[in-house]
Design a protein around this nucleic acid. Structure first.
Length: 566
RNA sequence: GCGCCCGUAGCUCAGCGGAUAGAGCGUUAGGUUGCGGACCUAAAGGCCGUAGGUUCGAGUCCUACCGGGCGUACCA
């Protein structure tokens, strides 16, 4: 039992064994026992792990929980990983890990290296995380950045949990908004050619459309001009979308996000394509009805509040139809066993009916998890800035990256739970950038690197260090903190709430800074990681190396850099 | 109107039904000439929106209400 990733379940097994022993000895009533869940106490003074089992079974046992706790603790088997359990009022059983177990974790961490804290939770399963997927009708804004940070971190954590992961961006290159985008672009294009043309009432008035039209004109000249009164050529529309997508892709690359696949909505509609197949399945299932000139998905028969149009009376499919076909592709054609859609909260009205449609096409709706993140309220000097592609002013993700940096922006986005509305004060973000928690975490990594560097200059390294020499409280406290990462990954991979990552990263960095500072507080300049005692130095360097691995791992999961120096 | 999300320290936010509700920033008082001070220690600061309820135990679950956001399209 030297593996951090299973220590908790190991303890649960020991508790269960203790219960059986106590019952056999007649010291515990033989009643139905709740799961022997072992958790981490909030206060480390109460041990590394604790069980509340006695509290949970007190009612059924009709005995005071403290008495039950004592009976279970008495029969708790001896184990090299854990000290004798302690009982605490009103009925907790507290466990403390042994020094030898903690020391072994240092070796364990170094052996795993970049794969530290990985899990087998999703082994053999294919999962997809689809995120951002903003309409290519304008540049990404700050809100899209939140979705990017959340989706990418979630994908990384699921990867760490053993899933085979695909990150995907769904490109809405078909549909009404795309047409409006084309109309707007054409109007700007004509204006540049000296024609009087008005952008559509529901078009995109942003400056970027003028720039885009200028780019098109520089590259293609006036060849897209049609007779006055004619609509825009489809080729111009397609080129505009292509340029927008390229721009979005660049922004995301700057943000450090790489997608395995960019999925075109238009591609659903080829002859014999996914769309036809998905609709055929719906039709075969009796889920389609023609009414008022349109084709409806009779979702109310499956519990939805109302039916929904899938094909408009003018023959064009709705966004909903596209999404049904798209999810048919995800589940039926590609066979993902877990699909996560990361959406802005303004799409939440769509959640229920997409889940219903997922059932209607024969997929498991429970395998579809739609993660909604609340929209970002931007503030500049206390003033609320509206985020809208249709309104004139938008703060782009590029501007944000420029102002606060990709790492800081990601950390900031991840810290808030997706469900919480978030105020982003641009002035404050810039002003605080040097005091930002992100630097605290990265600085810890740089210091760890620096210690190893300094040791190397003296011909010292972690090789051959004996971890049994690590006995100081602050040394073992650092190991304890490192061991929590596997729990964090498990939590995030099952709850899909990535905000635990940055909070944990802060705590791990704190444990290191405290560890490092403890040597100084001792007052003796000789008491450092590198001491005159070569053997002790090597052991401590081993811990430093392990801590660096752990910290780099969390930073990597958050999509942030782990700098060697700052 | 109906539905969903959110209301926790001065500010921005964490908190799987369990032990004295936490962090960063800000404020105050100390430490530290360093293997990186972008550090450490401590203090002050809370009727966890309000009122009921469930439970041995509620910031956490349920109900109502108040406040903010979003949705309620043959837009996406």
């Amino acid at each position: 039992m030297a593996d951090a990733r299973t220590i908790r379940s190991h303890l649960e097994g020991l508790v269960a064994a203790a219960v059986r022993e106590a019952v056999a000895a007649g010291e515990l009533p033989d009643v139905a026992v709740p799961a022997a869940s072992v958790e981490r106490p909030k206060d480390p003074a109460n041990g590394d792990f604790a069980s509340t089992l006695p509290l949970r079974m007190a009612r059924a046992a009709m005995r005071p929980p403290l008495e039950l706790a004592q009976a279970i603790a008495k029969h708790f088997p001896a184990d090299p990983a854990v000290e004798r359990p302690e009982v605490a009022a009103p009925g907790f059983i507290n466990f403390r890990l042994t020094s030898s177990f903690l020391q072994a974790q240092v070796e364990h961490t170094i052996a795993l290296g970049p794969g530290f804290a990985s899990l087998a939770l999703g082994a053999g399963k294919k999962a997809q995380v689809e995120f951002v997927s903003a309409n290519p009708t304008g540049p990404l804004h700050v809100g899209n950045g939140r979705g990017a940070a959340i989706g990418d971190a979630l994908a990384s954590v699921l990867e760490a949990a053993g899933y085979e992961i695909e990150r995907e961006y769904y490109v809405n290159d078909a549909g009404t908004q795309t047409d409006t985008f084309g109309d707007t672009l054409y109007a700007r294009y004509q204006q540049l050619a000296g024609r009087a043309a008005a952008i559509p009432a529901d078009g995109y008035p942003g400056e970027y459309m003028i720039a885009l039209a200028r780019t098109v004109r520089e590259r293609e000249g006036d060849r897209f001009l049609r007779e006055p009164g004619e609509g825009p050529p489809a080729e111009l529309n397609a080129l505009g979308i292509e340029l927008m997508v390229a721009q979005i892709r660049e922004t995301l690359a700057r943000f450090g996000v790489q997608f395995e696949r960019w999925f075109s909505e238009k591609a659903l509609y080829g002859a014999g394509g996914v769309y036809d197949e998905a609709m055929a399945v719906l039709r075969a299932g009796g889920h389609l009805a023609r009414r008022e000139g349109a084709l409806w998905f009779t979702s109310s028969e499956m519990g939805e509040e109302k039916d929904n149009v899938v094909v408009r009376s003018d023959g064009r499919p709705t966004y909903y139809a596209s999404d049904i076909a798209y999810h048919y592709d995800k589940f039926i054609r590609r066979g993902f066993s877990l699909v996560i859609d990361v959406w802005g909260a303004d799409h939440h009205g769509h959640v229920s009916r997409l889940k219903t449609a997922t059932r209607a096409i024969g997929a498991d709706a429970n395998a579809l998890h739609i993660l909604l993140y609340q929209l970002v309220t931007l503030k500049r000097g206390g003033e609320v800035v509206r985020l809208s592609k249709r309104g004139g002013e938008i703060i782009t993700l590029d501007e944000l990256i420029e102002e606060v940096g990709a790492d800081a922006a990601r950390f900031f986005f991840l810290t808030r739970s997706p469900g919480a509305q978030m105020d982003f004060d641009l002035d404050l973000a810039v002003k605080q950038s040097n005091e930002n928690p992100v630097y605290y975490v990265q600085y810890a990594h740089a210091r760890l690197a620096s210690i190893l560097q300094r040791a190397a200059e003296q011909g010292l390294g972690p090789d051959g260090g004996d971890v049994a020499l690590l006995t100081q409280p602050h040394e073992l406290a650092l190991v304890r903190e490192m061991m929590r990462l596997v729990d964090i990954i498990e939590t995030v991979a099952t709850t899909f709430e990535p905000q635990h990552l940055p909070h944990y990263a802060m705590e791990l960095a704190t444990a290191f800074h405290a560890f490092n500072d403890a040597f100084k507080q001792a007052g003796d300049p000789g008491l450092k990681v590198i001491t005159p005692d070569v053997e002790l130095s090597r052991a401590r360097l081993r811990l430093v190396l392990a801590a660096k691995i752990a910290l780099a791992r969390v930073l990597g999961l958050m999509g942030m850099s782990a700098p060697e120096r700052m």
